[in-house]
Nucleic acid binder design. Structure first.
Length: 657
DNA sequence: CTAGGGTTAG
């Protein structure tokens, strides 16, 4: 490197050091002086444009004014011979930084070089395209290779699996095995991921067999991938057996199983494994906590969720978006909008999902204005709201009857070249329908540019029920039956509408059709979390150990709220001709039982939290308002649609839901 | 040169 010091462009010793990567591209036996002379001239020319005189590793992808890569430009203009390491470094850098354009430039240069037939470099190029999500180029390059080794196949298989093209990945895997190439742990990892992605357990089992045959069954990577594969193929018990038999486990193996239980709604299993994982000396990661929070959110297990949150802080896992978003969602779904906001504000870095999750939380809690403000803040910050953001803000408007505002956002979205999906139309029907603008909603459906689905008519039907419109409701219900005959919801809604008009004969007829067609109604239930256990109630429940106390409690409450003006609204009970019996049935709705239970088993004065798997009935909603005033406690009720915060005789939804 | 696990909406 003696000649390097003579280079005019090397202005300081630190520059010399940083230029080493470039210098190393010079042919070993070239005379430094002449090379450097030519080179400096070129560089100075470039320098007058943009170049500040430094190329080091982090500047490797620096562009020259003509749009090419500076390093390659220098080499061309100086007629230098680059070595293989340059292409290696460039491809790798493009891969790491997902720079497709720069990768293409490098590839073009590489093809013209004397290394163009080096399999290793070709493999790296395939990988570069795959990581940059350009599978077509990766494939093309792969097909053009005169010689392909096991790594070439693995790179492409991995590329397909990471780009969710599982069928192509598997086909290539089969081809590779049939050709007699021996897969390694990398190949098996990606092939298994693909089998899991396609939920093809037959394929997965086949790969599993080949893993054993080639002796990879004890590899941690392969083992974790196997656990994940079986879990995704709905063979979670087999996944567990396999996990238990693993010779070597790491965090990923644990995470795969914890996540699987969380997906299946087996929250308690996730938590149990989480505890075992820690006891076994494994450090939980973002992935682990993310799964745990998701499990707690869907189970309504807030106490455990909070405990896990504390634990995460103790362990020192940073609140990055991926885990933070799930945590935010958990607080939102668990009824704590304050908790959700706190997480949102503390996120180290927010991504689009963070914003959308916060919007969702506001919408679910009926905080429309906050949702709108947040959405506007997002736009002010120059963040591009996506389809889901719009859906969230429209839903938020819908929850408090901000009809025009919601329609405004629908139009804005249309103008912003975002694709209006069917869910957006449903949201608008919901918006109009809840506000009682049924005809407008119907007209909106008829003018839709895409074919209305069952969900669209269902939204209208729901609105017809709330606003007791039998004629339009009947029409909407017919459309739903046509499009989605196996769902119980519309039948129930329709019979409810008939019943609320006193047409019990019609209501009974719908019930009969339902029974004949084998449509099953999911039983309504409510649940309450006390400490770490969840207590579930269904209507007319007489199985709970405290059933007598609960019944007595509710009778007491009922007497008191009657004095305050509560009157049973029996239009929600359908099948009992006798008025008195109808009233009694109503008193045994699952949410009322859950409320009585919750009041009995939680500290005086504190708030109680109840969750329900369908929307709250009108009578219960009314009764809850009275009870909140009577006992002087806040009652938080989550139904499938939103949160109701009952406080001092009124509800946060302002009776709009 | 290559690998496995996680989030929002409906």
């Amino acid at each position: 490197m003696k000649g390097a010091a003579q280079l005019p462009i090397f202005r300081s010793t630190s520059c010399i050091r940083r230029f080493k990567s470039l210098i190393s591209f010079f042919p070993r036996n070239s005379r430094s002086a002449s090379v450097s002379f030519q080179c400096s001239e070129t560089v100075e020319t470039i320098e007058s444009g943009q170049f500040n005189g430094v190329i080091d590793d982090k500047d490797l992808l620096r562009k020259s004014p003509n749009g090419n890569l500076l390093v390659l430009d220098l080499i061309d203009r100086c007629a230098l011979q680059p070595d293989a390491k340059l292409y290696f470094d460039l491809f790798k850098k493009c891969t790491d930084q997902r720079k497709l354009k720069e990768g293409r430039i490098t590839h073009a240069h590489f093809v013209a070089s004397s290394f163009r037939n080096y399999v290793v470099l070709q493999n790296i190029a395939v990988n570069m395209y795959a990581k940059c999500c350009d599978m077509e180029s990766a494939r093309k390059l792969f097909d053009e290779m005169t010689e392909r080794d096991m790594v070439s196949y693995t790179m492409l298989i991995t590329g397909y699996s990471q780009n969710s093209e599982f069928d192509k990945a598997l086909r290539l895997y089969v081809e590779m095995v049939e050709m007699g190439l021996k897969p390694n742990e990398f190949t098996f990892g990606s092939a298994l991921k693909s089998a899991g992605g396609m939920q093809s357990d037959s394929m997965g089992r086949g790969i599993h067999g080949v893993c054993i045959k080639f002796g990879f069954e004890d590899n941690v990577y392969v083992g974790s991938a196997l656990v994940d594969m079986y879990a995704r193929c709905s063979k979670i018990d087999e996944a567990k057996v396999l996990f238990d038999q693993l010779k070597v486990r790491n965090e990923v193996s644990w995470n795969a199983l914890i996540a699987a239980y969380a997906r299946e709604g087996e929250g308690p299993c996730s938590l149990k494994l989480f505890v075992e994982m820690k006891r076994g000396g494994f450090r939980p990661t973002h992935f682990t906590y993310s799964s745990i929070f998701a499990a707690c959110a869907s189970n309504g297990a807030m106490e455990q969720g909070k405990w896990a949150h504390t634990d995460m802080i103790k362990i020192g896992v940073e609140l990055v978006a991926f885990v933070g978003n799930t945590l935010l969602d958990m607080y939102g779904k668990g009824g704590s909008i304050e908790g959700a906001k706190k997480v949102f504000d503390r996120l180290v870095k927010k991504d689009i999902v963070s914003w959308n999750s916060m919007l969702t939380a506001y919408a679910q809690h009926g905080h429309s204005q906050e949702a709108i403000d947040l959405f506007e803040e997002m736009r002010d910050l120059g963040l591009e709201p996506n389809e889901i953001s719009y859906l969230c803000v429209i839903n938020a408007c819908s929850h408090t009857g901000l009809v025009e505002k919601g329609l405004y956002y629908f139009d804005v979205m249309n103008e912003n070249k975002l694709v209006l999906q069917i869910t957006h139309y449903v949201a608008i029907i919901d918006l109009l329908g809840r506000a009682g603008e049924l005809e407008r909603a119907e007209r909106f459906i008829l003018r839709m540019p895409i074919e209305p689905t069952a969900a669209v008519w269902k939204a209208l039907l729901g609105a017809c029920r709330v606003h007791k419109n039998m004629l339009l409701g009947g029409y909407a219900a017919e459309r739903v039956f046509e499009l989605d005959p196996y769902e119980s919801g519309p039948h129930m809604l329709l019979s409810n509408i008939y019943a609320s008009h006193g047409r019990r004969d019609e209501a009974a007829r719908v019930r009969k059709i339902m029974a004949q067609s084998g449509v099953k109604k999911e039983p309504a239930c409510s649940w309450v979390e006390i400490g770490s256990s969840v207590h579930l109630f269904v209507a007319n429940d007489d199985t709970h150990p405290q059933r007598e106390k609960i019944r007595v409690m509710w009778e007491k409450l009922r007497e008191e709220i009657k004095k305050m003006g509560y009157e049973a609204d029996t239009s929600h009970v359908l099948w009992y001709a006798d008025q008195r019996e109808r009233e009694e049935r109503l008193q045994l709705h699952s949410e009322k039982l859950a409320l009585a239970f919750a009041l009995l088993n939680t500290p005086e004065g504190g708030s109680v939290s109840i969750k329900k798997n369908i929307r709250v009935c009108g009578d219960c909603h009314n009764a809850f308002k009275f009870v909140s005033k009577l006992v002087g406690r806040e009652i938080i009720l989550r139904d499938t649609n939103r949160f109701h915060h009952f406080r001092n005789g009124s509800c946060s939804c302002r009776d709009y839901w």
